[in-house]
């Protein structure tokens, strides 16, 4: 009897606490398994692979920092890929931001047909990553493609094959990226909506003109959204893959002019089966992205305007 009483005194507390723990971890179980098996485990494994000569066939041999050294000192294609990728990021991100902001501001003037325009501008972002659009891009910028037909018809200008000319090929892909400014635009529109109307009313009572209102109210209040978009777009741009792959038939050509970093990574990993070296390449990319993100957050306090 007393044993039962003692049990009842202690046990219930544990049980109710335990029940909450069980429920919490029960619901979290799929994510936890995923986190360990598909994120943490692979992250550690690839860190290890990056210091081996792993090829997928034979067991990995430890090579220390050799892969990283080779990347830095003895791999011209790495530098080509860096060059291509940075050109792409530094061109496409600002252009995309500019377009997205300009169109969002124009649409925010209370025009009729807002939702139709919004939908039209958004559509390319939704389909832009697909193979079909890359195929279309190949056709549009081919020697006998749509663009040259139009140029010929309108101006009688015989254009080159933009896709197969190494001086232009990368810029066609930049254009494809800029064409997808829609999702950034929608985020800008949502940001513009949150600027209280009475700020503009107060400003116009103070005699501020339209452009002054834009630069003194709209832009500063929008800086958090600009910042958010810039970070997201930059990360996405570093990871761009499909369009370059389809447009260049997976080669990164012509003559490596569209050798995006991810494309190079793919070739090393799954064409040449240099898992070790590719892992090192992957980690370099991770570091680059982390560096850019960290830099953005560090510089943010100099230009991003927060209320609180």
């Amino acid at each position: 009897m007393s044993a039962v009483a003692a049990f009842e005194l202690k046990a219930p507390r544990d049980r109710s606490g335990l029940r909450e723990q069980l429920a919490g971890y029960g619901f979290l179980a799929p994510w936890l398994i995923g986190f360990f098996a598909l994120t943490l485990g692979p992250a550690l494994a690839s860190l290890y692979f990056s210091m081996t000569d792993y090829s997928g066939m034979s067991a990995p041999n430890w090579v220390g920092a050799d892969n990283y050294l080779r990347i830095a000192t003895d791999d011209p294609r790495f530098w080509t890929a860096m060059n291509v990728t940075f050109t792409f990021v530094l061109l496409s991100v600002p252009l995309k931001l500019l377009f997205a902001l300009a169109v969002a501001v124009a649409l925010n003037k209370g025009l009729r047909g807002l939702s139709l325009f919004r939908a039209i501008f958004y559509l390319p972002s939704l389909v832009g990553g697909s193979v079909a659009i890359a195929v279309l891009w190949r056709q549009v910028f081919a020697g006998d493609g749509l663009l040259n037909q139009a140029l010929n018809g309108l101006f009688g200008y015989e254009g080159p094959s933009w896709i197969s000319n190494p001086s232009y090929s990368l810029y066609t892909i930049v254009l494809l990226a800029v064409w997808q400014f829609g999702s950034a635009m929608i985020i800008f529109l949502a940001g513009l909506r949150q600027i209280p109307q009475d700020m503009y009313e107060a400003a116009s009572i103070d005699g501020a003109g339209r452009s002054r209102q834009f630069f003194k109210i709209t832009l500063p209040l929008l800086t958090p959204v600009i910042f958010f978009n810039a970070v997201i777009l930059t990360i996405d741009a570093f990871k761009a893959f499909t369009s370059a792959f389809v447009i260049s038939d997976g080669t990164g050509g012509p003559i490596d002019s569209t050798l995006f970093y991810t494309l190079y990574l793919y070739q090393e990993a799954f064409i040449n089966f240099r898992f070790g070296y590719a892992s090192a390449l992957a980690w370099v990319l991770v570091l680059i992205i982390a560096f850019f993100t960290a830099m953005s957050f560090l510089t943010a306090r100099f230009w991003v305007h927060y209320d609180d």
Partner: peptide, 26 residues
């Protein structure tokens, strides 16, 4: 409510930032 919720949540947010490329080969 369970122990470690905040910790796991922070990790989850971390994976949002994690580029998938580093995980691909393993």
């Amino acid at each position: 409510r369970f122990k470690g919720r905040g910790f796991w949540f922070a990790l989850m947010l971390g994976t949002l930032m994690m580029p998938q490329h580093a995980l691909l080969i393993p």
